[in-house]
């Protein structure tokens, strides 16, 4: 079925890495920019490290569907060990893109996933999060990488909304660390 101007993102992560939060942050920031959005978590058993999927839908018109996303335009993988156990390309749209948190090159990951040149982007989001936030929480840098690769929203919009959203909830140090992580990932994300 046609999606009529709707963009769908699937997030693969392990519980504790912030994949569900990333799906929500992308949705919330897109809403702040005037879009209609959905962010849907798909939990399994609730234990840290378990594979978790989440989805984000972004559209110019109200969203009525409430199904899981089965043919995503973009896939974000927060943990490269998931490439061994999950088919992250399942249902990927023909021109779809996969963004993976890894220190490997896009070409290496792309060959492994059996995709075409240009369909895979990579960024070492774990190192960036340790450097900027002090903890291996790769979700915010992966949003920055997604923004840069897809153009769904600008890194500036993302940073501004992040500050607004978490002001008073997180310390300024943590907020600015996350903003730096978003910016750094957007700069460092590699495509072929």
């Amino acid at each position: 079925m046609s999606k009529k101007g709707m963009v769908e993102v699937r997030w693969h992560s392990r519980a504790g890495q912030g994949g569900v939060t990333a799906a929500k942050v992308l949705a919330e920031t897109s809403m702040a920019l005037g879009k209609f959005v959905q962010a849907i978590p798909e939990y399994g058993a609730e234990r840290e490290g378990a594979p978790v999927k989440a989805y984000t839908r972004i559209s110019d018109s109200p969203i009525v569907v409430h199904t899981q996303v089965t043919d995503p335009d973009y896939v974000v993988v927060l943990d490269e060990t998931l490439l061994d156990i999950e088919d992250v390309t399942e249902g990927l749209a023909p021109e779809g893109k996969v963004i993976v948190n890894t220190s490997k090159s896009p070409e290496e990951v792309r060959k492994r996933l059996g995709l075409e040149p240009g369909q895979v982007a990579t960024v070492d989001a774990t190192s960036i999060s340790i450097e900027c936030i002090g903890r291996p929480i790769p979700n915010t840098p992966m949003i920055g990488a997604l923004a840069r690769v897809t153009g769904l929203l600008s890194v500036e919009e993302l940073a501004e909304d992040f500050r607004k959203k978490f002001s008073g909830k997180l310390s300024d140090r943590v907020i600015e660390g996350n903003v730096r992580a978003i910016q750094k990932a957007a700069e460092e994300v590699r495509t072929e």
């Binding site: 799906a23 962010a39 939990y43």
Partner: peptide, 12 residues
């Protein structure tokens, strides 16, 4: 409201 689909899903 439908569990997870609506209860845990984020919407406008």
């Amino acid at each position: 409201l439908d569990g997870f689909i609506i209860s845990h899903g984020l919407e406008v």
